[in-house]
């Protein structure tokens, strides 16, 4: 049972195609786990399609002329277009970290992962999403691992893909999606180990006394 979902606004922006790639990946993956959000997203998409296609007014003459040209060009080339076979890229995608293999949601199938890097029980592989500010990664924490208490300068999104973890607030299961802001402090720990997808839009700042020395790890982890 998934307990943590994206809020309505986020789901709506997702259905509109208005979220950046890093967040769109998170929403798409969550939806693969969560029938409830999948259904909501389908309804939103339907409503958006009605909205987008409801205006039946004829375009200005100049626009219509451009569209007419486009149609005749398309019709003359269209016979040469190969029809889509419907055979897509690999339909399953897996990742291996510390000799454990995990199946990932479909949305990851074309995403390029950098090499795994890590300190102790924490490993991270970054995705190349090409976005300046936001950093998207897969984060793996070994059994009995934890991340020192930290706040976030910006916003941090975590989607649990496999395993479990808990923090001061709750226990989390695969499919749970959490968004934490600058005010939230937490120190996640895991008993069995876990694989997460994370997006942060600024470096993490660790707040707990001793682990201040670990501050540079924030850069590495995310």
């Amino acid at each position: 049972m998934i307990n943590f979902h994206p809020d309505k606004q986020m789901l709506e922006l997702h259905a509109q195609g208005q979220l950046p790639l890093s967040l769109s990946i998170a929403l798409s993956a969550h939806i693969e786990y969560c029938g409830q959000c999948q259904q909501q997203c389908q309804q939103l998409t339907k409503a958006l399609s009605v909205e987008a296609f409801s205006d039946n007014s004829a375009p200005a003459q100049q626009e219509q002329a451009l569209l007419d040209d486009l149609l005749s060009n398309m019709l003359s080339d269209i016979d040469d277009l190969p029809l889509d076979t419907g055979i897509n890229l690999p339909s399953s995608v897996t990742v291996t970290v510390k000799e454990k293999q995990y199946a990932l949601p479909q949305v990851f199938r074309q995403q390029m992962l950098s090499e795994w890097q890590g300190i102790g029980k924490v490993s991270r592989a970054r995705l190349d999403t090409g976005e300046g500010k936001a950093r998207a990664s897969l984060l793996y924490i070994d059994a009995d691992g934890e991340i020192p208490q930290h706040t976030h300068k910006g916003t941090e999104l975590t989607l649990l893909l496999a395993g479990e973890f808990s923090d001061e607030f709750s226990d989390y299961k695969p499919g749970d999606l959490m968004v934490m802001t600058a005010e939230d402090k937490h120190s996640p720990k895991t008993k069995q180990g876990c694989l997460c997808y994370t997006v942060v839009d600024a470096p993490l700042y660790f707040t707990k006394g001793l682990s201040k020395i670990l501050n540079p790890i924030g850069e590495l982890i995310y």
Partner: peptide, 9 residues
């Protein structure tokens, strides 16, 4: 890149 069809099947 073309990720649109991966994000929304």
């Amino acid at each position: 890149d073309s990720f649109g069809d991966d994000i929304w099947q």
